[in-house]
């Protein structure tokens, strides 16, 4: 264990100031950060514990929608009656992640900021550009079954592991951030980055930026949604491909659609091309297939994950089919 200092934050401003001053890492549930510290992947010199900050509330917003505090536990959020009623896909996504024990500790902010489970990122005896910039990517020519088919770069092919973030991407959530310069908001779909030539940067946040909450806008009446996760075992596995779908069909025509994919990219992947194909079109199997294929036209599978392309296509199509023709 590498020695580190531990401090407990008294308020948001103090936590941010501490991080800005010392380069501290924020400690919430610790379900990912502490693992990484044990593995030697992360070695913060200071931990700022934010668990006692007043960020653990879920409140309904005046204009509709929901504000979820950053330290709300995944299990509590999944069970929240308003989430279950108004955002069932978010509940589903949360419950399909990790295990009961982990969800009880893991927080909303921490879930968004969890890091990839790429085998090489987690193994300090192998090169990894995300962990050690410039050392090389071991996954590109290694075991890459879990890895990206969209938006990757020659420097990194890792995927973001979250289920929750995929559902939030489809919900057009907004992330509330408090940084050294004060509070600001970031659309959830802009929070995570593609790897490019800086794969060590997962998000657009700087080290001293603290996520304080996530806002979920209300879904229009008549909207249906689902979250579907495909993985290598029935429980406790990261997604090979997952899809969060929000769909509004009226008169057999797609009025609104939002699709986000998990397990395919360095970030929750908003399938805007597919959405563009679908919007305003009549619901039909051919249109669904056309949309899925449009989204995946630029897919670049690796040696070990070619199956993800037909898998993602089938999952998108079947999700659309199931929601469009679901009994009301």
């Amino acid at each position: 264990m590498i020695p580190f200092d531990y401090r407990r934050a008294a308020d948001v401003e103090g936590a941010v100031a501490e991080a800005a001053r010392t380069g501290a890492a924020f400690l919430a549930g610790g379900t990912n950060l502490v693992d990484r510290m044990k593995l030697g992947v992360s070695a913060p010199e200071v931990l700022v514990d934010i668990n006692r900050l007043p960020l653990d509330g879920v409140e309904e917003l005046p204009g509709g929608g929901l504000r979820v505090g950053a330290t709300v536990r995944n299990s509590d959020l999944a069970a929240h009656p308003v989430v279950r009623r108004d955002y069932p896909l978010l509940s589903r996504a949360l419950l399909s992640g990790a295990s009961g024990q982990l969800r009880t500790l893991a927080t909303t902010g921490g879930n968004l900021l969890q890091r990839t489970r790429c085998l090489y990122f987690q193994d300090t005896s192998t090169p990894c550009n995300k962990r050690e910039p410039g050392s090389g990517c071991s996954a590109i020519d290694g075991h890459n079954r879990q890895h990206a088919i969209l938006g990757a770069s020659e420097h990194c092919v890792a995927v973001h592991p979250s289920d929750m973030a995929v559902a939030m991407a489809a919900l057009d959530a907004t992330v509330l951030v408090h940084g050294p310069g004060g509070p600001r908001t970031v659309p959830l779909t802009d929070l995570h980055r593609l790897p490019g030539d800086e794969p060590h940067r997962d998000t657009v946040l700087s080290a001293a930026d603290l996520i304080t909450a996530v806002d979920l806008p209300p879904l229009p009446r008549g909207t249906r949604s689902l979250y579907r996760k495909v993985r290598d075992r029935a429980s406790y596995a990261f997604a090979l491909v997952s899809v969060a779908l929000v769909l509004h069909v009226d008169d057999d025509v797609v009025r609104d659609v939002r699709i986000a994919l998990g397990g395919v990219a360095h970030k929750p992947w908003r399938a805007r091309r597919a959405e563009g194909v679908l919007r305003g079109r009549p619901v039909s199997a051919d249109v669904f297939l056309e949309a899925a294929e449009a989204e995946l036209a630029d897919a670049r599978p690796l040696s070990g994950n070619a199956f993800k392309v037909p898998l993602a296509r089938n999952v998108i199509v079947s999700a659309l089919r199931d929601l469009a023709w679901e009994e009301r």
């Binding site: 489970r117 085998l119 071991s138 020519d141 290694g142 075991h143 075992r233 596995a237």
Partner: peptide
């Protein structure tokens, strides 16, 4: 999963060895 380049099993924990 043996990585032939390095010579070791790279999914060496219960999250990745299913």
């Amino acid at each position: 999963l043996l990585d032939e380049r390095f010579g070791h099993v790279v999914n060496h924990d219960l999250a990745e060895y299913h």
